[in-house]
Design a binder for these strands. Structure first.
Length: 575
RNA sequence: GCGCCAGUAGCUCAGUGGAUUAGAGCGUCGCCCUGCGGAGGCGAAGGUCGCAGGUUCGAGUCCUGCCUGGCGCGCCA
């Protein structure tokens, strides 16, 4: 990465300055390389001289002049291939500018890298898992689940770009009370439907207290009938429900899968909670933890002694006094499976804020299982408030009266939904104004980015038709041709594109996919400015320069489509 | 009551490994079409970074206290 190269050069310069006695030989922490706010300050800067000055003062009490120290470092920085110029500024900043020739040469490299542009090897050899959405399989996805899906999916994309081997997983809660209620509700709805369609009367089964009664249940019941030809109607209740557990699960999972696919979100694995019980892993672990004194019996229930561990105040029930395990019991087994069996180096669980209380308990579980707690990371995100026509869209899952991910995607479009949900940092709650998202397209920045991409494509298309460029082939003289790119707008665009690696690293480091949307805008802005200022296909433009600019366009298309793809959005050639 | 998160321009939000003049979009007000897609470009106005202290040569960023809002503190998930 460029930043790392710069860091190395500055670090070497510091050592050289110390070696020649111009810089006090004092231990310095890792040299920091920043991105200055002002473009006049160059692409990179370092405050290392100020840090040295303060370290000297702390160690010896002597005052030194940071500008003087900085100068001694500047003197040792080789200007040449990568670095165009170095200057001393302000109280002792070292401002670094990249070499123009070097920048120009990068255009060809970007084109050559294609869809892999920006990839870094930060995660080489590491297997990470991202577990996201994991909504209860009891109906279509509630709108809020959309944010979870977008965050998890984009984060997984970013991790892959950063070199990690990533597994995307959806945990299916197909064994808890909620799923049971769903099955009961589906059964009742199914019977009603059969009666309406001319079945025998007298099978009055009500939707249970606290059950599900959304309109979708009727659709599901119809699907059950299609699959079973009404045979469940005559079965004995418990047999019918057993069968329904399987069919109902299949129907609801397929429904959720389709909704997510419409958002561009997919999974490598749908992990069944029930399977943890079926294979006896839950029991096995409860026994093991009991033997180890982590679980005790009290008041007829079995408790995991979470309070032994930091951050936890209370113990947690794993088996109720009625003998039924809580979700927490299977969670222990599930995470055992993730870390001990499947050996993921790290797992990121994407959770809504209302699950925050669960975090310390999971930390305790990790400790009890003897797994390094840092290997489990929770990405917590805040809720989404949906606004339509200036009013909050109220949603209640219980009554079934809620907007689904599918409906929102249909109304707004998948790219716009993703972009809007991605612009806000996860810990903040977000107001999603649907009316605005569809009507005022210029307020939705995703169109700006996609429009930029479409413009590039149209330009390249014309150039291809005129035989000026072949987008599939990098010409032999490309390296010399790009040296004609000296206009400030051209160089700014190249600089922006070269931020890609750092942006990916930053987003991965902070688990902040939203940074990407801002980068995408900046990148597009740089292209638009170039587009306005530098003609490409115009008789006044010398042919060589035109070809150079077309190469720049090819690189820009590469960069822009890469960002869009990372965010899970389409990069349209026309719109 | 305790805990977690948020409070930055009229609005929606970036920026929080401390650092050179706090940014963007929208909105407002100016410019720019005898040029490749104007869904564009250039510029201006607009901010006591919730409040009060503290640490530091330097704080939107770190520490403490407070205010406001959201969420959490179940034998629910």
């Amino acid at each position: 990465m460029i930043r790392d190269q710069i860091r190395q050069i500055v670090t070497d310069a510091v050592a050289a300055a110390q070696g020649s006695g111009n810089l006090p030989s004092i231990d310095i922490p890792l040299v920091e390389i920043q991105r200055p706010n002002q473009p006049e300050h160059g692409e990179y800067s370092s405050n290392v001289a100020m840090l040295v000055a303060s370290a000297v003062r702390k160690a010896t009490g002597q005052k030194t002049n940071p500008r003087q120290l900085a100068q001694s470092i500047v003197d040792e920085i080789p200007v040449g291939e990568l670095i165009g110029s170095v200057e001393l500024a302000g109280p002792g900043f070292i401002n670094i500018r990249l070499d123009e020739r070097w920048l120009q040469g990068k255009v060809v490299e970007i084109i050559a890298q294609g869809s892999a542009f920006g990839a870094i090897d930060r995660g080489a050899g590491q297997r990470w898992q991202v577990e996201y959405v994991s909504a209860n399989p009891t109906g279509p996805l509630h709108y809020g689940g959309g944010r979870n899906a977008v965050l998890g999916d984009t984060l997984a994309n970013l991790l892959e770009a950063a070199g990690y081997e990533v597994q995307r997983e959806f945990y299916v809660n197909d064994s808890g009370t909620q799923f049971q209620l769903f099955i009961e509700s589906l059964y009742a709805t199914y019977l009603q439907l059969c009666e309406e369609l001319g079945g025998e009367p007298g099978r009055n089964v009500e939707i249970p207290e606290g059950g599900y009664q959304g309109a979708y249940l009727k659709d599901y019941a119809q699907l059950v009938r299609d699959m079973e030809n009404g045979s469940l109607f005559h079965m004995e209740q418990s047999t019918a429900k057993d069968a329904l557990r399987k069919i109902g699960r299949e129907i609801v999972i397929r429904d959720i899968e389709e909704e997510l696919a419409a958002l561009g979100v997919t999974f490598d694995r749908w992990f069944s909670e029930k399977s943890l019980y079926d294979e006896g892993l839950v029991d096995k672990l409860l026994e093991q933890l009991t033997d180890e004194g982590e679980i005790i019996e009290k008041d007829g229930a079995r408790w995991f002694l979470a309070s032994k561990y930091p951050g936890n105040e209370k113990d947690e029930v794993v088996v109720r006094s009625n003998g039924a395990p809580t979700y927490f019991a299977s969670d222990i087994a599930y995470h055992y499976d993730k870390f001990v069996r499947r050996k993921f180096d790290r797992v990121i669980n994407v959770w809504a804020v209302d699950h925050q209380g669960h975090i310390p308990r999971m930390g305790a579980v990790m400790e009890a299982l003897g797994v390094e707690p840092d290997r489990l990371v929770i990405l917590l995100y805040n809720l989404v408030k949906l606004i339509r026509d200036g009013q909050e869209v109220k949603m209640s899952k219980r009554s079934g009266d809620f907007l689904t991910v599918r409906e929102v995607v249909e109304e707004v479009g998948p790219d716009a939904v993703r972009f809007m949900l991605l612009t806000t940092s996860p810990e903040r709650s977000v107001e999603f104004d649907m009316s605005l998202a569809v009507q005022r397209k210029n307020e939705n920045r995703v169109f700006y980015v996609q429009y930029g991409h479409a413009r590039i494509c149209s330009l390249i298309q014309r150039a291809t038709e005129n035989g000026i460029v072949d987008p599939e082939v990098i010409p032999d003289d490309a390296a010399e041709t790009v040296n004609l790119l000296t206009h400030p707008a051209e160089l700014t665009l190249i600089r922006r594109m070269l931020e890609m690696e750092e942006q990916i690293e930053l987003a991965v480091e902070r688990l902040s996919p939203h940074n990407l949307t801002y980068y995408a805008e900046d990148l597009t802005k740089a292209f638009s400015a170039f587009y306005e200022n530098c003609q490409v296909l115009h008789s006044d433009v010398p042919p060589a320069l035109a070809r150079a600019r077309l190469l720049l366009c090819l690189a820009a298309r590469t960069a822009l489509s890469r960002v869009l793809n990372l965010m899970g959005m389409s990069a349209p050639e026309a719109m």
